[in-house]
Computed example of a mutant assay.
Amino acid sequence: MSHTHANKKPLLSRVRRIKGQAEALEKALQDDGDCGAVLQQIAAIRGAVNGLMAEVLEGHLREHVGSHDISAEQRDAEVDAVARLLRSYLK
């Protein structure tokens, strides 16, 4: 079973909070909201997405990359895939 399946409820809750934050940001921009409030909302969204990424990434590393059930070649491929993903995410 996938770690995202096992933790589906809390992950979906996080995504819904991020969606709500994005909707609040959209409304603030539409309503010509205060720049400080807009920047604060952007920072909150970024923090929430980073937290979600960290949680899913940790689960992936523990369940897939750190698994004792995979070969060294599979582990190397998983590490390469995670490294590519992190480089893309951190751009």
Results as ranks from 00 to 15, higher is better:
1 M>A: 10
2 S>D: 15
3 H>N: 11
3 H>L: 10
4 T>E: 05
6 A>Y: 08
7 N>M: 04
9 K>R: 11
10 P>M: 07
11 L>V: 06
12 L>M: 12
12 L>T: 09
13 S>Q: 14
13 S>N: 15
13 S>K: 15
14 R>A: 14
14 R>T: 12
17 R>I: 05
17 R>Q: 10
18 I>S: 06
19 K>H: 10
20 G>S: 12
21 Q>M: 10
22 A>N: 02
23 E>S: 09
24 A>H: 06
24 A>T: 14
26 E>V: 13
27 K>V: 14
27 K>L: 15
30 Q>S: 10
30 Q>D: 13
30 Q>N: 09
30 Q>T: 08
31 D>E: 15
31 D>R: 11
31 D>F: 06
32 D>M: 12
33 G>S: 08
34 D>Q: 13
34 D>S: 10
35 C>V: 13
37 A>G: 09
38 V>F: 09
38 V>Q: 06
38 V>L: 06
39 L>S: 10
41 Q>M: 14
41 Q>N: 12
42 I>S: 04
42 I>A: 09
43 A>Y: 07
43 A>E: 10
44 A>Y: 01
44 A>F: 01
46 R>T: 15
46 R>N: 15
46 R>Y: 10
48 A>G: 13
48 A>N: 08
48 A>P: 05
49 V>T: 13
50 N>A: 13
53 M>Q: 13
53 M>D: 09
54 A>M: 11
54 A>Q: 15
55 E>N: 00
55 E>T: 07
56 V>Y: 01
57 L>I: 14
58 E>V: 00
58 E>A: 09
59 G>H: 02
59 G>V: 02
61 L>E: 03
61 L>C: 04
61 L>R: 04
62 R>G: 03
62 R>S: 15
63 E>F: 00
63 E>A: 10
64 H>T: 03
66 G>T: 03
67 S>K: 05
67 S>Y: 03
67 S>D: 04
68 H>M: 03
69 D>C: 03
70 I>Q: 02
70 I>F: 01
70 I>H: 05
70 I>D: 01
72 A>S: 09
72 A>I: 00
73 E>D: 09
73 E>I: 02
73 E>M: 05
77 A>I: 02
78 E>R: 02
78 E>A: 04
80 D>K: 11
81 A>S: 11
82 V>R: 02
83 A>P: 02
83 A>T: 13
83 A>I: 08
84 R>A: 12
84 R>T: 07
85 L>T: 06
86 L>W: 03
87 R>M: 10
89 Y>K: 07
89 Y>E: 07
90 L>I: 09
90 L>K: 09
91 K>M: 08
